[in-house]
Computed example of a mutant assay.
Amino acid sequence: MKNYSEVYEQELINNVIPFWMKHSKDELGGGYFNCLDRFGNVFDTDKFMWLQAREVWTFATLYHEQEARSEWLEMARHGADFLAKHGRDAEGNWYFSLDQYGKPLVQPYNIFSDCFASMAFAALYKADPQEKYAKIAKDTFYNILKRQNNPKGKYNKAYPGTRELKNFALPMILSNLALEMEHLLDKKTVDDLLKSVIHEVMDIFYQQDSGLILENVNLDGSFSDSFDGRLVNPGHTIEAMWFMMDLGLRLNDQKLIIKATEIALRTLDYGWDKEFGGIFYFMDIKKHPVQQLEWDQKLWWVHLEALVCMAKAYAFTGKNECREWFDKLHDYAWNHFRDAEHGEWFAYLNRRGEVLLPLKGGKWKCCFHVPRALFQVAKTLQQVAEPAS
């Protein structure tokens, strides 16, 4: 597995990060260009706040944890300056998107802009401990906690009092954000949040009968027999399970690590396309047709998060099944998503594994899942000892 560690680190440093360093920085308008084609050409200048923040996080984290390269810190500061100047409304909520020069385009309806902004400035504070970064991170974080029970607020399209559901994505994100923010928060806040999110993820959304995690449940945690209530997103589950493993490590809770590993393995088996390979994007827990037309696409982040999950599961448990899944995922991901010719990785494949959209950055893809996964796998497997032959 140490050989894998070296391969992933080299891919991060020599192939992926140079692509973003070369093509994404907007010297004129500030921040980063999000929409890049296969070759790195800008095909749209709109800027999406959660993607801007993710790129800040990436470069700040690499500077702090990988290597203190001045150009990485400068890149992180460049994006943070744009975010701090333009990213929030008067109430401190983060817009969804801006134009190239920072004028708002889409209202702050999506709390994930706030989550990743908080994460970005917390990471930048580690790399460059200026109080202004800590303040933005903490102000945003406490605003998230205030909004967590009604994250969309006035932008919620659902009719009140009928089918009110809660979504898996926010507790999943908070389980990671709590650790990302820990150096800026008091111990009680962190401990209370960790207890809450672990309960939500592992007890409320986890279904004991199927061994799977649902994307939406009723407010009381019960099953909703509807499109949204039957929805399973294998990638979300698998990503959340490595968050749970990190929390298990932080809390010295091996039972949590083992349970997360079991759920991840079950989800991989459930979500794997037995005919064409790769992991399905969306599934219906009752095997009904899903409403998402992209249900059978193979997405970059799903497979990269699965690689991180299996690397951690193998490192923390030593289970050979995790090693076998890592090998299988590695072969699929590197043979289908990686662009050896022009750098970075493709995002969207059809069910057969053929490139569907040749973009490298867009409304949903940025400098985040690929570099984070490469970094996490390299770091996780660096110290894994191979069993004696």
Rank of each mutant, 00 (worst) to 15 (best):
215 E>F: 01
116 F>D: 08
187 K>P: 00
327 D>E: 14
211 G>R: 04
321 E>K: 09
19 F>C: 01
309 C>V: 08
326 F>Q: 06
213 I>L: 00
307 L>K: 04
211 G>C: 05
61 T>F: 02
127 A>L: 07
354 E>V: 07
324 E>C: 12
210 S>T: 15
217 V>I: 06
74 E>C: 06
361 G>N: 06
70 S>C: 10
209 D>I: 04
65 E>A: 12
206 Y>W: 09
179 L>D: 10
94 W>I: 09
291 Q>E: 15
76 A>W: 06
342 H>K: 11
10 Q>R: 15
342 H>Q: 10
214 L>G: 00
112 F>A: 00
29 G>N: 04
107 Q>D: 14
17 I>M: 01
278 G>I: 05
101 Y>P: 08
321 E>M: 03
124 L>Y: 10
35 C>F: 08
4 Y>S: 09
19 F>W: 11
215 E>C: 01
178 A>C: 12
102 G>F: 07
224 S>C: 04
103 K>T: 14
367 C>F: 02
70 S>E: 15
266 R>H: 12
281 Y>Q: 10
385 A>W: 05
302 V>F: 07
383 Q>E: 14
235 G>T: 11
257 I>V: 13
78 H>E: 01
372 R>L: 07
315 A>D: 06
341 E>Q: 11
7 V>M: 14
254 Q>I: 13
379 K>R: 14
120 A>W: 01
324 E>A: 14
177 L>T: 03
78 H>C: 10
340 A>Q: 14
271 G>S: 05
386 E>H: 11
69 R>C: 01
288 H>T: 07
290 V>Q: 06
151 P>L: 03
112 F>K: 05
270 Y>T: 07
234 P>L: 11
331 D>Q: 14
273 D>H: 03
356 L>V: 04
296 D>G: 03
373 A>I: 09
132 K>Q: 13
359 L>P: 05
116 F>T: 06
146 K>Y: 09
268 L>P: 10
109 Y>G: 12
95 Y>T: 09
261 T>S: 13
7 V>I: 15
327 D>M: 10
388 A>F: 13
30 G>V: 01
326 F>T: 02
92 G>S: 02
124 L>G: 08
106 V>H: 13
158 A>H: 13
200 E>T: 09
35 C>H: 12
107 Q>L: 13
371 P>T: 13
238 I>L: 00
5 S>C: 03
214 L>E: 01
240 A>F: 05
51 L>Q: 15
150 N>M: 07
73 L>F: 10
387 P>E: 07
